[in-house]
Design a protein around this nucleic acid. Structure first.
Lengths: 97, 97
DNA sequence: ACGATAGGCAAGTAGCGACTTGCCTATCAA
DNA sequence: TTGATAGGCAAGTCGCTACTTGCCTATCGT
């Protein structure tokens, strides 16, 4: 929940992950993995996706809930809304780093 | 006018430059340089700022107009609007890389 | 209990990206 | 025309980051 929303969005793979979660919320790491490989043809390891999810989570764009041996991930668009009114002044004057 | 709006936004210095232009449009390279140094205390060379402006311009976030030996830079928020409705679906369904 | 599944924790590698440095071009003022 | 100003080009350095590899922990089914 920090401030590196921009840095988190910088990577195309992470954007794909957000797309994936936007289309189908509450996926596990392996679900996201296989979907990225099959639907988008990306060849990346489980660890890669895991690290991407960590970045997204620390940016507050993804929240996760542990449940048994599964960890489900949900999209959270709230940081996006806060951060985008920095130059598009359509709302409150909340600026930051 | 390409597609790396996200990558352009990833760097904090570039975000500062956008802030600068949002506050005062039509600045030259040197104006932006001195403002970044004095107001934000950043110590960077002219070349650094020039390269940042090039990135912002190729992302379509900044447009420039040459005039004599000066080159003035203007903020363009239109790519931001297009790109943000990717996960915040408040508008048209325009998605991209 | 055992194996299989879901995930985590480093440490290491490779490439990209931000920044510098040095030199070159172009425009204006005197 | 000369000097100063505004900016561009290209190569080189250095740190960060995306990704891999190897091993470890935890939970579930049978």
């Amino acid at each position: 929940m920090s401030e590196d929303v921009f840095r988190a969005l910088a990577d195309p793979t992470r954007r794909r992950i957000l797309d994936e979660l936007a289309e189908r919320n509450g996926q596990s790491l392996f679900e996201i993995c296989t979907r990225l490989v099959t639907k988008h043809g990306l060849g990346l390891s489980r660890q890669a996706v895991s690290q991407h999810l960590a970045v997204l989570e620390s940016a507050g764009l993804v929240v996760s809930r542990r449940q048994g041996r599964y960890k489900f991930h949900d999209l959270n668009t709230e940081p996006l809304e806060r951060v985008m009114n920095r130059w598009l002044k359509t709302d409150s004057p909340e600026n930051s780093s």
